[in-house]
Nucleic acid binder design. Structure first.
Lengths: 212, 212
DNA sequence: CTGCATCCGCCTCGATACTG
DNA sequence: CAGTATCGAGGCGGATGCAG
């Protein structure tokens, strides 16, 4: 059980795949990108993943230093090394949109996958020198972008204070937007995406997320 | 055989992994990053990969539009969609260097993996407004960076014309450099890396590849 | 020899049942 | 709730066969 299959290649990519290459592993990382999650949450959001396999993967990732158990709560979170995977996951997600078919009934959808699709459109260089939060209400869950000093942070949950802008959409719409199957203009016109708040802040939010 | 295991998630990352997530797939893409390669080359450079599995993977990637058979030669090459994976592969490689152990005798090494490690250090924003080629002689193979109008292209083989700079190193040294196990200064001092050419061009080459 | 296809043993995966 | 134990099915790895 401890003898894992490895590529045994002296190469960074092979090393990365020795850690992340097995089935479900990168999807578990994706689930943790927006903050800590519990075992049962992961299991519920990854249909088809067996409970034994989830336990194996979590143990392995903890051992590799990609994730860790939270100190305060019974949950898992990314370590600093794991958080470095965010650009990789976003790049891969963008690339994968070229292969995402139209929503079929057999496909599962989750609010955070929609929010992740929104994040793939994030152009951090447009983060103005403002201090504001943009909330995304996706189906029944809430996420946010925190803009601070030209940096943008994505996380689950409501904004700490009052959000400057509140966007509302369902997950399918956000994935359609991210994959280019639908334009922001169309989604807004159809009422499938709403962005409310002060006009100038809404403009900044739309520019930041390429929702022109 | 045609019923492949898929995640059935409406998410770009899951779509990407449905294409790239199986064993060996991304390593095959890596092998094609520097130009077309033949079936037997791939087999030789991917020890442990069975011949049937390589045939399956190639067929699958052709079907997905990530690679294609060359028209002129009996070889496979990346399509435009496949070439878009370059930043993903480079990012993953960089990340994986954090998990690359010191060279052990059981690990395979290939010249192009060394060159890839060099490319992970490429900072295209430092590509000056020059027209020159930097050749890398890695073990018994030759690769090059072509700098043209602020863009950099990496490929296998000698430079079309006369290379402005010629760097020489073995693959292990380049992976050590890429993974931060060794500094360029140390490699140069030890003679494990040599960079020859006009002084100013050598400087540009070193700056471009963070070999200060 | 190159470019695969076939066969076989093993290990991983996925589902279910069970436990602290 | 958070895992562990078990087991059938299928993907994987290695050896071999075979056509061009």
């Amino acid at each position: 059980m401890n003898i894992k299959r490895a590529y045994h290649q002296y190469c960074g990519l092979a090393s990365a795949l020795d850690v992340l290459g097995e089935r479900w592993t990168l999807l578990i990382v994706r689930e943790l990108l927006l903050g800590p999650r519990r075992y049962s949450d992961l299991l519920a959001d990854l249909p088809g993943l067996g409970t034994n396999l989830l336990a194996d993967r979590l143990k392995f990732l903890v051992d590799k230093g990609v994730i860790r158990q939270c100190l305060s709560r019974p949950a898992y979170e990314l370590t600093e090394a794991g958080a470095l995977l965010r650009p990789v996951v976003l790049d891969l997600t963008r690339w994968g949109f070229g292969f995402t078919p139209d929503k079929s009934t057999v496909d599962a959808v989750r609010p955070r996958w929609g929010f992740l699709a929104a994040e793939t459109r994030l152009r951090a260089e447009w983060a103005g020198d403002v201090d504001e939060d943009y909330e995304f209400h996706v189906d029944d869950e809430v996420f946010r972008f925190e803009v601070r000093a030209g940096q943008v942070q994505a996380a689950a949950g409501r904004a700490p204070g009052q959000a400057t802008v509140v966007a509302t959409a369902d997950a399918v719409t956000l994935v359609r937007l991210g994959s280019g199957q639908m334009t922001a203009a169309d989604a807004l016109a159809a009422g499938e995406l709403t962005i409310s708040g002060p006009t100038d802040a809404v403009q900044r939010c739309r520019r930041l997320l390429d929702l022109a």
